[in-house]
């Protein structure tokens, strides 16, 4: 698969823009998933995941073909997500949520310091609850937990994506797990 992707990348570098659509097809699901779990909002995750593909396209000449393209792409996407989380204004997508088709978006907008009343959390459906609990994690733990348990990536690859030592990744995963455990209480 990597060989095919590299072939497409070379075609794009030669000026064949259409070859990029195969690259997008191959990674769009994974990338969108990461962004969604990081941001918890469909509109924003779509925007950020698309932005990640556009940035990758623009900077494609800097990509080292000997490395894994997905690692590089994940790095662009997670950086964009973290930037977005840090910049996020509480009322950024207020209109979008009201018109939203499901309740997921609503909870994700509440900043992580304000936890909802316990009875309300208990009433959530499982999927809603999962997204809510992930969104409650500080962003440095959220990133590693999403990459590890949603994307199921090996620790070594997470360390390359986030450009941090393996030890740091492990520490963050340990703390992230403990933080989640405390949030969940006795499930």
């Amino acid at each position: 698969m990597d060989a095919l992707i590299n072939k497409r990348i070379k075609q794009v570098l030669k000026g064949d823009q259409n070859a990029y659509s195969d690259v997008v097809s191959h990674y769009q699901q994974k990338l969108y998933q990461v962004c969604y779990r990081m941001l918890g909002n469909k509109h924003e995750s779509e925007d950020i995941a698309q932005e990640a593909f556009v940035r990758a396209y623009i900077n494609l000449h800097t990509f080292d073909l000997n490395r894994k393209f997905s690692t590089w792409l994940y790095r662009i996407a997670t950086n964009l997500c973290i930037d977005r989380i840090r910049k996020k204004k509480p009322d950024y997508y207020l209109d979008a949520q009201v018109a939203g088709t499901d309740g997921l978006d609503m909870y994700s907008q509440i900043s992580s310091s304000d936890r909802l009343p316990e009875e309300e959390v208990q009433r959530m459906e499982l999927q809603e609850r999962i997204q809510y609990e992930i969104s409650q994690l500080p962003d440095k733990y959220r990133t590693v937990i999403v990459l590890k348990y949603i994307e199921e990536l090996p620790l070594q690859e997470i360390s390359e994506i986030l450009d941090m030592p393996l030890g740091t990744v492990k520490t963050r995963i340990h703390r992230g797990r403990e933080a989640l455990r405390k949030q969940l209480g006795n499930l």
Binding site: Y20, Y32, Q33, K42, E46, I130
Partner: peptide, 26 residues
């Protein structure tokens, strides 16, 4: 806790995602 996070359902990508990316390319 791990089992809980892992039970997250796959969120499928919007249908017009790829088209929108291609439109946004410079």
């Amino acid at each position: 806790t791990i089992a809980f996070v892992k039970s997250a359902a796959v969120v499928s990508v919007p249908l017009d995602f790829k088209q929108n990316v291609m439109v946004r390319l410079p």
